[in-house]
Simulated scan of single mutants.
Amino acid sequence: MSATPNGNHTSAEQPEMPLIEHLLELRNRLLKMVLAVVICFAVIYPFANDLYLLLSQPLRDLLPVGQTMIATDITSPFFAPLKLALVLSVFAAIPIILYQLWSFIAPGLYAHEKRLAFPLLFTSVLLFYAGAAFAYFVVFPLVFGFFTAIGPEGIVELPDISSYLNFVLKMFFAFGIAFEIPIATVLLIMTGATTPNDLAAKRPYVVVACFIIGMLLTPPDIISQTLLAVPMWILFEFGILFGRLVNRDREARAEPDSQ
């Protein structure tokens, strides 16, 4: 029998794989991940400039007539779209990357673990994309509207394209990771690190922590902080709900074994 990472053993019909074969399989999986990113980059890069214009649309729509974005570095017009294309390539390849990771660890899982692991991986991809979409369609218009309206009278706003890209990528990752809270909550419950009742009892502390994280990961304005903290709290509640369902399924499966 082969051992799983947590020390459990798989079924006897799966023979133990030598270490060298494990390393070779891991190398092949990593090469496929890199190849997926490279292929996505080759497809996306020709449209990098158009994609940057699309990405900057929420800010450009709010700039006064006659004002536009600028490049303060001579290399920015080249490297900003290049960086965007590379990041979008990784975003686009995430399903393939997670599938390769799943294929590598799946042989070491029990049947009931496989039944839960793949939906969790699939859901985590959707939640990450949902977080990025929420940032683009909901957060950006409100945040940029706030910043463009609060400036002193007579100040001309000419946002730098590289600074803008760094800002929005930070926001994408912040909201994408924040939307993974239900997955993290379910995993904590599945591993026995905590229980739904314990998490529910710590709800006031979680709400405070959500606002602290929102303060650290977003610009210093109450709008973006609230728009990150409130969804985090709601997603935490969903995590507790799904965690209760996982516990109920586990208890139902354990009852026949105890009889």
Rank of each mutant, 00 (worst) to 15 (best):
F122T: 15
I161D: 00
S124M: 04
T185K: 02
F211T: 04
V186M: 15
E157N: 06
F140M: 08
I181G: 01
P219V: 05
I177L: 15
F173S: 14
V125I: 15
P152R: 03
F175Q: 07
V207R: 09
E157T: 05
D160G: 00
G151V: 08
S124A: 09
A135S: 14
F137P: 05
P182Y: 09
F134M: 06
F137A: 13
T195C: 12
G214T: 02
K170P: 01
L127F: 09
M215H: 03
L158F: 03
G145T: 11
P159G: 10
I183M: 12
V143K: 08
P182S: 07
G131C: 10
L188K: 08
Y136G: 05
A200C: 08
F137C: 12
A200E: 15
F122D: 11
V156M: 07
F167W: 04
Y205E: 02
F122H: 10
S163G: 06
P152L: 01
A193D: 13
G176P: 10
P159F: 07
T218Q: 08
A130N: 05
L142R: 13
S163W: 01
A184I: 13
F134I: 10
K170N: 15
M215G: 09
L120M: 14
A135L: 06
D221H: 11
T123A: 14
T148Q: 00
K170I: 05
E157Q: 10
F134Y: 14
F179S: 08
D221L: 14
L199Q: 01
F146Y: 13
L120C: 11
T194M: 07
T218K: 02
T148W: 00
I150W: 04
K202R: 15
A201M: 11
L142V: 15
F146Q: 01
S162C: 00
F173L: 14
S124C: 02
T191A: 15
S162F: 00
I155D: 02
N166Q: 10
P220A: 03
L217H: 13
A178D: 08
D160S: 02
G151M: 07
F128M: 07
F140H: 07
P119W: 04
V186R: 13
Y205C: 05
A193Y: 12
F172R: 05
G214Y: 01
P204G: 04
